[in-house]
Design a protein around this nucleic acid. Structure first.
Lengths: 231, 231
DNA sequence: CGCTAACTTGATAAGCTTCAAGTTCCGTGG
DNA sequence: CCACGGAACTTGAAGCTTATCAAGTTAGCG
C-alpha cells in the first residue's frame, strides 16, 4: 500500500504532492498517475479513456441520474482493471475514494488480462444486480462488507484477538449509493452488526470482522460465497 | 420471426415439433436448436456452455437466491449473443420465454462480435444496476417497456392509429424478477400506464405504445435515452 | 475555538410487499 | 356442449420496511 497517513487523517485533506495533480488525464499513456481522494479519473459520456490498472488505493465507478441520484456500479481494489467501455464514450465515471495510483494498460500487450477483467466485471455486475433486486437490507450490508474485506482486508487485531480488518474508503453515503439505500439505513444496519458482535469499528472507517461465518451467513445465498463475487 | 401461433395461444402449449426437443444441449456445436418456452438452455453453476446467438424468440438470464428468490439479469432479443462466462461454469441460467431458435457461435471466427457483445452486456448490466438501485417503480416499469419495445417492437395499430407494438414474452412475474418488484406491483403500474393512455394492452401479452414521448419521460434520466441501453 | 463534513439516532410517513379474493382465459373431461 | 380446473392476471386492504425529516454527536481543520 501507499504510505498513507493514519486512518482518521485520510478523510479529505490534500497533501502537497496531490494538489498539483490535474484531475483529468494528460496525454494518453502517461505511465502512472497519482490521484487525490474525490478526484474524477474519467467522466460518464466523455471521450473514452484508456484502460487502466489500479496499482493502489480505491476507485468507484458511478452513474448518475438527473444529477441528484447516484449509483455506484462497482468498487475497485488494487490489481483490478477498469475503464472498459463500448462505444466512443465512457458508460460511467470513475472516482478515487482515497489516494490512488493508476497506470495505463496496453490492450495489445495485455489482451488476455483485459478479456479476463471484462468477464470478471460482467460477473460482478450480475451479482450486484441480484443483490440490488432481491436481497434484503441486511444481506446487502453483510455482502458489501464481505466483499470489501476480500478486496482490502489484511490480518489485524481487535484487542488481542485476531480479526481481519480493512480500511473502509467509502463513506456511508457511498455505501448507500452502492447498495441502493440511504445514508441513515446504512448507518443503522452497520451499527446493528456492531452491536451483534459480528463486526467492529471505533473509527467509522476502520472495520474489523469479528465473526466471518455469521457475516457470510447473513450475506445470504446465491453462490457458495456470500460476497458480491470472488472468483 | 418464427411462424408463431396467434398471440394468446403462445402461452404454454407444446406443439409437436417442440416436444421432442431435449431441454439441455446435445453434443457441442450442434449448429441450431429449437427451444420450447420455459426450457432451460443452460444452468447456473453447470459446466460452461458455448457462446450462443439468439436467432429468434426471447431468452432471459437468471440468477437464483435460495431457490425462492429469482433475479432476471437481462432479457435477450433476436440477434444478441449470450452465454459469455468467466471460469469453468456459467454465472447464470438461460431460459427461453417463448419458442426460440439459437445457434452456437465460434469464438475464433467471430472474435469481434463476441468482444462487442461482451461490452454491450456489461453496459446493459450497469444500466440495469442503476435502474434497480436508484429508479422509482414507475421509472423501472417505463424503462422496461421502452427497452422491450426496442428489442421486440414492430409497427402496429391500435384501432386505426399507428402505434409500435410488441409481444411481451415475459409474464408479470418475470417482469417483477427483472425489476426487483412483486407481481402485484408490476400489474398495478402497468394498468396505471394503461389508464393514463400511455400504453395499451387488451391481451396482457400484446403491448402497444401510444405515447412514446411520455413513456421516455417517465423512464427517467441517466442517459439521453430512457431505456436500459440502446447503443 | 468555532466551523464543516461525516456519522448516528429518533419520529413520522410513504411506498411497496404481503395476504386475500376475485376475474379471465384456456384446455380438459364429463 | 358445458362444467371444471389451473395459470396468469387484477384489485383491495393491512402491515412492514425503509425513506424522509429533524436533531444531535464526533472529529478534523482553519
Amino acid at each position: 500500500m501507499l504510505d498513507l497517513p493514519a486512518a482518521s487523517l485520510v478523510a479529505r485533506g490534500l497533501p502537497p504532492e496531490f494538489q498539483a495533480q490535474p484531475p483529468i488525464a494528460r496525454p494518453p499513456f502517461s505511465p502512472r498517475r497519482l490521484i487525490a481522494p474525490g478526484a474524477l479519473i474519467y467522466t460518464e459520456g466523455a471521450e473514452r479513456s484508456s484502460i487502466l490498472r489500479l496499482k493502489d488505493g480505491c476507485v468507484v465507478l458511478t452513474q448518475s441520474l438527473d444529477g441528484k441520484r447516484r449509483q455506484i456500479l462497482d468498487v475497485i481494489g488494487p490489481g483490478r482493471l477498469f475503464g472498459l467501455a463500448h462505444g466512443k464514450t465512457n458508460h460511467c465515471s470513475a472516482e478515487a475514494c482515497t489516494y490512488s495510483e493508476i497506470e495505463a494498460v496496453d490492450p495489445q500487450r495485455e489482451r488476455l488480462n483485459v478479456e479476463d477483467a471484462l468477464l470478471h466485471s460482467l460477473k460482478r455486475a450480475q451479482k450486484h444486480a441480484t443483490l440490488l433486486g432481491r436481497k434484503t437490507t441486511m444481506e446487502k450490508i453483510a455482502a458489501a462488507i464481505a466483499d470489501l474485506a476480500l478486496q482490502f482486508g489484511r490480518p489485524g487485531f481487535v484487542g488481542s484477538r485476531r480479526a481481519e480488518t480493512f480500511h473502509l474508503y467509502l463513506t456511508r453515503s457511498d455505501l448507500g449509493d452502492w447498495l441502493g439505500l440511504t445514508i441513515e439505513t446504512v448507518s443503522r444496519y452497520l451499527n446493528q452488526l456492531k452491536r451483534g458482535g459480528i463486526i467492529d469499528f471505533s473509527d467509522p472507517q476502520i472495520v474489523s470482522i469479528l465473526d466471518a461465518d455469521k457475516l457470510a451467513a447473513l450475506a445470504g445465498g446465491g453462490a457458495v460465497d456470500g460476497t458480491l463475487c470472488i472468483a
